[in-house]
Design a protein around this nucleic acid. Structure first.
Lengths: 221, 221
DNA sequence: ATATTATGACTGACCAGTCAGTCATTTTTG
DNA sequence: CAAAAATGACTGACTGGTCAGTCATAATAT
């Protein structure tokens, strides 16, 4: 799109952003979110292949054709969904108080972010989707790795290595495999997705037990 | 199937198991396995919904209609696959030398079974399938829970509780959440399924590090 | 000859993606 | 200012293709 001279003139004359234009943009964004919302619901409930875009459209209260005005195709919609839901979270870890805090507090903070911001929100459904569909959509696994894992993991690993050097940790096991830190939380997501009906797993207690194994008895709660 | 009178007569007359009959049974079983094999390959590669029974048939070198002589429908085939692959494994744990062995050896044995018998075989694909498709097939999650989890978990939990009572373990965290024991192995399966191309995770090293965190430095290897 | 097993063409349901047409809103013209 | 023209967001019927499951027929075994 080329800049429109008409628009410029109007905005200049009134000394404000063109209101009609802004309303359009806002409306467009609202629709986009509505589609993504509906898509998450359907993909989470039925998986990628079994989700019908007719249903997504119905949930979003639009016609099916409209989806194609916002997303290239079903797979793009799926990818955008993952990107939109997870990318914002990365900042939280990247910007966190780094090395000024004792390692136990750092670890508890990471675990807490995971439990509250993922397990406690619809993001857990996105994680489930990545686990389920990722192997069949290399592009999806790629996006997730590049935009989340590759940005968060090194930060955490660096802090853990520092803790080893400082003598805060007696073993370098965690620094070498930071995955060990969140593995139980991931398992809780999976477990409750599968067996929540018959044997729900209390993620709070689970992670408390996990930290107990890592650091020994009770810490600040 | 009702007992076949012809078979009885033949066996009696010849004083041996009816050979023709046995050949039939064997042939039938071989076909069944061929179908299950092909199905595992396809389901693992494409997921339940995207797998075509035409492809399964081609892989098994039979016609599509033949599948329906061995399995009621696509979903039954899927369920039978899971049952057939995992049930045999349960015996291994159930029959293992229980409380005569020190707890660390018990734990290492459990981890080892997991790594060798699941991660090291096509059973890991079955686990992946359960994780991926389970939420959409409650019947599948049910089967897996009843036939595997519900039989293995109590045994392991009991042994861990005993270890706590005996003073072999200083914390009851593991006894309360035996899931913590295998969580890293599960994460390794998932991780390598998603990111194996760009950042493979060495499950041997991972589990060694895990045990190090649970028990402190090196044990018997 | 009969029963059992296997085949693969066929059917009907299903669904992603398209596109010609509608309509509300905005811009231009007189 | 009102009428006319332009815009572009939105719709939903339609198409082409896919695939689970069936069944009449054929091959094989007894």
């Amino acid at each position: 799109m080329v800049a429109n001279p008409r628009r410029k003139r109007t905005a200049a004359r009134r000394g404000e952003a063109a209101p009609a234009q802004d309303a359009r943009v806002a409306r467009r964004e609202k629709r986009r979110v509505a589609i993504l919302d509906a898509a998450l619901e359907q993909f989470a409930a039925r998986g990628f292949a079994a989700t019908r875009l007719d249903d997504v459209a119905r949930r979003a209260r639009i016609a099916k054709g409209t989806i194609y005005l916002y997303f290239r195709d079903k797979e793009s919609l799926f990818q955008e969904l993952v990107r939109t839901m997870l990318s914002p979270l990365v900042g939280t870890i990247e910007a966190a108080p780094l090395s000024e805090v004792p390692i136990r507090a750092v670890v508890e903070m990471i675990v807490d972010v995971f439990v509250r911001e993922i397990y406690g929100t619809r993001r857990k459904d996105v994680i489930r989707l990545i686990i389920s569909e990722g192997p069949r959509f290399p592009k999806l696994a790629d996006i997730y790795y590049r935009e989340v894992i590759a940005r968060v993991l090194p930060v955490i690993r660096a802090r853990l290595s520092l803790a080893v050097k400082r003598g805060e940790l007696s073993s370098d096991a965690l620094a070498r495999f930071p995955q060990l830190l969140v593995a139980p939380a991931l398992v809780a997501i999976i477990w409750n997705g599968l067996f929540g009906r018959m044997a729900p797993l209390d993620i709070g207690e689970l992670m408390r037990a996990h930290l107990e194994l890592l650091f020994g008895e009770r810490g600040a709660t």
